[in-house]
Design a protein around this nucleic acid. Structure first.
Lengths: 225, 225
DNA sequence: GCCGGGAACTGTGTATACAATGTCCCTGTA
DNA sequence: TACAGGGACATTGTATACACAGTTCCCGGC
């Protein structure tokens, strides 16, 4: 694997996991020393982060981690509704019934388990990721998938901002199961409607859950332009 | 302006305008000689083209201009329906009535003119571009706008593949006028419906218009896995 | 005490050299 | 004739050096 790939993935993870906070300056020299590689691959990694929207280039100052505001959450969910609803419809149309029946069954099992004693967060999130991949595959639309990839990056960052409570987790799993079932059945309308319901509830949950800090601790930079 | 920016924009234009055909290899050394700059900024330009999806990186062989197939056109219009319909709705909701009334009036003027003797293609396309920008502004959603930017790049390439006939041009202008009018009126439902109609007609036009060559003249590379 | 200018510094933009890796062709053999 | 292997070539990946631009801070003047 290339050095620039390693640096890109590491930095991306750091940003998504909030180890690198908004406003943080990512100097080329500093990062090249951190990873023990030269500036060239670092430059490429920073370019990719900028293209992803996770960082912004400030002339003369360097690349800084981008901010996330409540406005951004609204905007992200708006785009997500457009993409996810369409993806659900297309997946229902060009479905792979077996795959989605299996996902629905697994999700229902998770729902039952979440109502019980333990909450297997990791298992659930892994399952959701597999469902995302299954939908991408079913839509058979590389452009839609590319747009989803970029969007999910930002959503992952926002999600990490607040801790989803267990009740919401169980209901989210149930909503996902509903979507998977509708796709397996080939019910486009239901798949889209269920997706819309899920997104509305998710947004609601994000907006009502106490977050770490919407306004990050004073960034190293002064509020410039 | 940076050398890498110039190279990026020039190469992007070349690809969108079909001066660089799919399968064409963009060697770093070759391009650096063409632009009279070193490999470093060329590398950055090629990275951006790859991120845009206009080119693909093949290890050991170089970056090649990406292919466009009928399947891609279908996929592009699928994504476009998702994004444009949502954008039209949002624009109608958060509208700037004056701006869209003005656009509607201009578009209607173009329709009248297109039914007359001359067809001012450039004027029409410029108007559509301004309307796209107005919608982007009205949606006030940077993530949606970013997705649109990427999509429009590919659509521009596809559009250049066939010559839109004058009748279709006039009808397209009328459809745009309808959309602008609906947005100006704040009619979300009508704005979305009119957009859907326009896209269906556009796709139909692209698919029925004779194109240069769907399968490009044998690319320099052999069909490699 | 405030404003303006200049110099030093920090950091990016570009060029070039070197290393690693994949491809393609040629040759030998079955 | 088909296939495997090896070597030369081409091309990218990385490191390093230098030039230029922007920012910041200090000093002098008002």
């Amino acid at each position: 694997m290339r050095a620039s790939d390693r640096a890109y993935e590491a930095l991306r993870e750091d940003i998504v996991e909030w180890r690198l906070l908004p406003g943080q300056v990512l100097g080329e020299v500093e990062q090249s020393e951190r990873f023990g590689i030269s500036r060239t691959p670092i430059r490429e990694a920073l370019s990719r982060l900028t293209a992803d929207g996770l960082a912004e280039a400030h002339r003369g100052r360097g690349v800084v981690v981008s901010q996330v505001s409540l406005e951004d959450v609204r905007a992200l969910f708006e785009l997500r509704e457009a993409l996810d609803c369409r993806a659900a419809r297309l997946a229902a149309r060009r479905r792979d019934p077996v795959a989605f029946q299996g996902l629905a069954a697994e999700l229902e099992a998770v729902v039952a388990q979440l109502h019980g004693p333990g909450t297997d967060r990791a298992g659930y999130y892994d399952l959701v990721e597999r469902m995302d991949r299954a939908i991408d595959e079913a839509t058979a639309n590389p452009y839609l998938t590319a747009a989803q990839r970029s969007l999910r990056l930002h959503l992952a960052r926002v999600r990490k901002l607040s801790r989803t409570n267990p009740d919401r987790l169980a209901r989210a799993a149930a909503e996902h199961a509903q979507i998977a079932r509708a796709i397996a059945d080939g019910s486009e309308e239901i798949a889209e409607a269920a997706t819309r319901v899920h997104l509305a509830n998710s947004l609601q949950a994000v907006l009502t859950t106490p977050v770490r800090e919407w306004v990050q601790p004073a960034p190293p930079l002064e509020a410039a332009g």
